[in-house]
Every structure is written in C-alpha cells, then in structure tokens.
C-alpha cells in the first residue's frame, strides 16, 4: 500500500534532478537558520521576562530615610515587625548594611556613614498577588509605624523593561512567521518551476490516468527531502551561532543578559522547527501541485 506522502522507488525515478542540484535546500537552510535564530531570541526573551517578573515583580523595597541613626533603626524594626504581621507578606528580609554600602559606594565612596552621610536602611518584602493588589494599605500600615518609610514597588520600575521584553518577544514571533511565509513562498515558486520543467512527463502521466494525488506525491516527496536536508543544515548552523552567543553573554556577566538563556523546553521547540518546516513545505508543495493540476483537464 502506498501512503499519500510516500512514493515507490519507481515513482521517484519519474522526476529527474538530484535533490541537492537545485537551490531549494540552500534556500530552506537560510530560511531555517533565520527562523531558529528569531525563535531562539523570542524564547530567550520570554524566559528572561518570566525570570524577571516571576521573581521580583511582587516585591517591594521599604527604605527608611531617617538621618538619626537610632530613630532609623527603631523605625526599621517597627516596619519589619509590621510587615511580618501582615497577611499576604510571604517574606521579609532586611538588606544587610554592607550590601547597601556596596551599592552606593560608586557614588559616595567607601566611607559613607562614617563621614556623616546618612544611609537609609532597606527592607525587601515579597507579597502575595492579593497583597500586592492592595499595596496602598500595606504602605499606610508601614508609614503608621515608620513615618520615614518610603515604599518602592518593583513592578512599577520593571514595567518599562517588561514592556520592552514583551515587544521584542512579539517581534521575534513576527520574524518567525515572516520567515515561515517566505519559506512557503519559496516552496511554491520551486514547485511551479518544477511543474514547468516536468510538464511533458506530467501530461503523459495525466493522460495515462494518473490522479492529481499520484502526481503531487512525486513533488511533495522531493520537497520534503529538500526541506529536511535544508532544515537540518540551517538548524545546525543556528545552534552553533546560539552556543557561541551564549558564551559571549556569559562572559559579559550581566544578570539581565544572563537570565535570557534557553531552557530545555525551548531547545525542544527549536528542534521541532526543521520538522515543522519539512511538514509545512510538504503540504505547501502538495496543495500547490494539486492547485496547478486542477487547471488541467
């Protein structure tokens, strides 16, 4: 029995030209290379966005901006106590003074407080989604026990970054769709050219009683093999580029860039792209051939 997507060895001989003799596999390789890079970019950005938003989007930082060190310490403790007692506050952590000193060192130098510059204390608090939704009430409760407190919502300053990452992710998706469309268009052009090249053979087959599906099978098999070969070459080239890029990003040492890595699931999605490309190419070839043949009697 012959499956709709297969052709017997004898059927394969009906069309001439070796698989790699035409430009089709190389066109597909370039398209797949670009598609994998765009998809990898989108997936990495999506992963980064999840990391950023997932870990700190519901976090607040409470600064106690009080010049008097004793009063500052007193209000810090009061704020921590109040925060710990609040419903929906999952974690309260005081940022160590050494860490704060290290953060502001580039601006005020190593001496800091010793030179009379008041350095605020900082408390990180992770909130539940519900608690984050009523941040005003949380802020009121903190200020009631620590009047010098200032509450910074991480989600607020992360919003532009999250927006940028979201836009870039959509851009990557659009690029994937564009390259996929270009690939489909290339397949259509290649199939039409092949149909013209083999018009004589097709007419003879047609007049012998070959069905459109039988003729389409000859072309779709060739395109499927071209797409698999080209897809594999494009995928491998893209993987090499991604690995080299990953090394470079690791060398930069940026936390934000470092979070834009590809998890295992993303690699699996990328691995599916050449297979999806081959299936799409095969279907496009099939429908193109059938569409052209339907114009013949």
């Amino acid at each position: 029995m012959t499956l709709p997507f297969t052709a017997s060895p004898a059927e394969r001989r009906l069309l001439t030209e070796g698989r790699l003799s035409g430009p089709m596999p190389w066109v597909i390789a370039i398209m797949m290379f670009l598609t994998v890079l765009a998809a990898a970019g989108g997936l990495a950005l999506n992963h980064a966005a999840q990391n950023v938003t997932g870990s700190i989007a519901q976090r607040i930082t409470v600064q106690i901006v009080e010049a008097n060190p004793d009063l500052r310490e007193q209000q810090t403790r009061a704020a921590m106590t109040a925060l710990s007692a609040m419903e929906g506050v999952t974690e309260v952590t005081r940022v160590p003074d050494a860490e704060i000193a290290a953060l502001i060192e580039p601006w005020i130098g190593a001496a800091g407080e010793e030179e009379g510059i008041p350095v605020p204390t900082m408390i990180d608090a992770d909130l539940s989604e519900e608690a984050h939704d009523r941040l005003d009430l949380v802020e009121e409760a903190i200020v009631a026990v620590a009047p010098a407190a200032r509450v910074d919502d991480h989600a607020q300053f992360l919003a532009p970054l999250a927006g940028l990452i979201g836009s870039l992710t959509w851009l990557a998706l659009a690029l994937v769709l564009l390259t996929a469309s270009a690939l489909a268009a290339s397949v259509i052009l290649a199939v039409r050219a092949a149909l013209n090249t083999h018009r004589g053979t097709i007419e003879v087959l047609h007049l012998m009683g070959a069905t459109d599906i039988q003729i389409a099978r000859l072309f779709q098999r060739r395109i499927a093999l071209d797409a698999l070969l080209g897809g594999a070459v494009g995928f491998l080239c893209a993987v090499i580029v991604l690995l080299l890029l990953g090394q470079r990003i690791g060398a930069v040492g940026s936390e934000l860039l470092g979070s834009a890595t590809l998890p295992l699931g993303a690699w699996l999605i990328l691995l599916l792209l050449p297979i999806i490309g081959a299936i799409v190419s095969t279907l496009v070839a099939r429908f193109t051939v059938i569409g052209v043949l339907k114009k013949m009697l």
Partner: peptide, 26 residues
C-alpha cells in the same frame, strides 16, 4: 511522448505503475 530520462522498460511500465501494479508484478 516518451519520458526521456526513463528506459524503454520504464516507459512501457508507466501505465501499470499509474494503475498501482506492484513492482514485482511488472
């Protein structure tokens, strides 16, 4: 209208292949 890249055998076998005759019966 013989198919130029096929042998005489394959050209003659074409209608049978189109009709789905198995290779071993050709």
């Amino acid at each position: 209208r013989l198919v130029p890249h096929l042998s005489a055998f394959d050209n003659i076998a074409l209608p049978l292949r189109v009709a789905g005759v198995e290779e071993e019966e050709l």
